[in-house]
Design a protein around this nucleic acid. Structure first.
Length: 324
DNA sequence: AAAGTAAGCAACCGCATAACG
DNA sequence: ACGTTATGCGGTTGCTTACTT
């Protein structure tokens, strides 16, 4: 059975997202939470398909995304994880909560592949601390990922019992996530999309540097239409844009000061609770992190090289016996 | 300065599978 | 149990920018 693509519909817009579209999307998610992507188009007037909306949110707009160059530590983690899991970018991304699978995939394809090739042809493998890929069976890699996923799910389930200490945000309620991040003791409704607003502010900054001719029309049903109106061609357009832009920037500023205490990643890259709760539903598994197993230590450890052989020589039973 | 080329990255496409009626 | 729809994932494309000639 062949299904028609979701983006076949007439008037579905493609290509780069405009800041206006981003604002509409974020505004909608702020109100309704992420998920239910099919309703986004009908409720916001965005001429984008559900897939496109989800992708935009998960890859750029959702809170807690780190942009910019990868650190050495991240790089090594990706290399080790790629060896272990193959091209399962979503699984790899679950170990790097600040990075999206798309980002990691791109980075792998554009940088790491070449780098590894170079390193492998040279005799400096040991010095770089990067291992020669060990060929593993695909079933084994998948099984190991599944073990990891199952373990995380178990931790998540168990964490419900501990909810007297930690108020876990409702699934799909991104407001709660952010509220918790800024004020872990209460889940009030006053704060909102700090970090994805920051993302948009960043986009707007770029956009202002390189102005585009936007003819985007925001539907009247949109909750954000009072704040941003771009349909006019008069001089008011500029001031309204400026107003929105200014608001975003000020939001960005308040975000930076508000959240600096909440966001923290320790030296071993173990996420603190505050940070974990900053993730949206696409990365819920990081909420409670059990003590690192040998496997995870191997993944996180910069000096993983020495462990590689040991790990690979271990039987699966040994690998998994401590997990449950 | 202009043209050509390479690199980087955002976004799209198609497939697999989960969820739902 | 089956068909349909929604969602998630990985591969790929194509646009933009940087660099080279």
């Amino acid at each position: 059975m062949k299904r028609s693509p979701c983006c076949d519909k007439i008037r579905i817009k493609k290509g780069p997202w405009t800041p206006e579209e981003d604002i509409i999307l974020v505004s909608y998610i702020q109100e309704h939470g992420p998920g239910n992507w099919s309703s986004v188009t009908s409720n916001t007037g965005l001429m984008r398909c559900s897939k496109s909306c989800r992708l935009r949110w998960t890859n750029y707009l959702r809170p807690g995304i780190k942009r910019g160059s990868f650190t050495d530590h991240e790089e090594k983690m990706i290399i080790n994880l790629q060896q272990l899991l193959g091209n399962r970018w979503a699984a790899i991304a679950s170990y790097l909560p600040q990075r999206t699978d798309n980002d990691i995939k791109n980075y792998w394809n554009t940088h790491l592949k070449k780098k590894l090739k170079k390193i492998q042809t040279s005799s400096n493998n040991e010095k770089e601390g990067i291992t020669i890929p060990i060929v593993k069976g695909q079933w084994e890699r998948r099984l190991q990922t599944d073990i990891h996923m199952a373990k995380q799910a178990l931790c998540e389930a168990l964490s419900i019992d501990k909810s007297t200490n930690i108020i876990l945000p409702e699934k799909n309620n991104i407001m709660s996530y952010n509220n918790y991040a800024t004020n872990p003791t209460t889940l009030n409704q006053t704060s909102s999309y700090a970090s994805n607003t920051e993302n948009i502010a960043r986009l707007l900054e770029k956009w202002m540097k390189k102005p585009q001719n936007s003819a985007y029309t925001i539907n009247s049903g949109n909750s954000f239409s009072n704040m941003v109106t771009t349909t006019g061609s008069s001089s008011s357009e500029c001031t309204q844009k400026d107003y929105a832009f200014g608001s975003m920037l000020s939001f960005k500023h308040s975000y930076n000061s508000d959240c600096s205490q909440s966001l923290s990643v320790d030296e071993n890259n173990n996420l603190t609770m505050d940070y974990c709760l900053f993730q949206d539903e696409s990365k819920p598994k990081q909420v409670t992190q059990a003590p690192l197993t040998f496997l995870e230590k191997w993944l996180f450890d910069d000096g993983a090289v020495q462990c590689n052989e040991d790990l690979m020589n271990m039987s699966l039973e040994e690998n998994t016996s401590g997990l449950f």
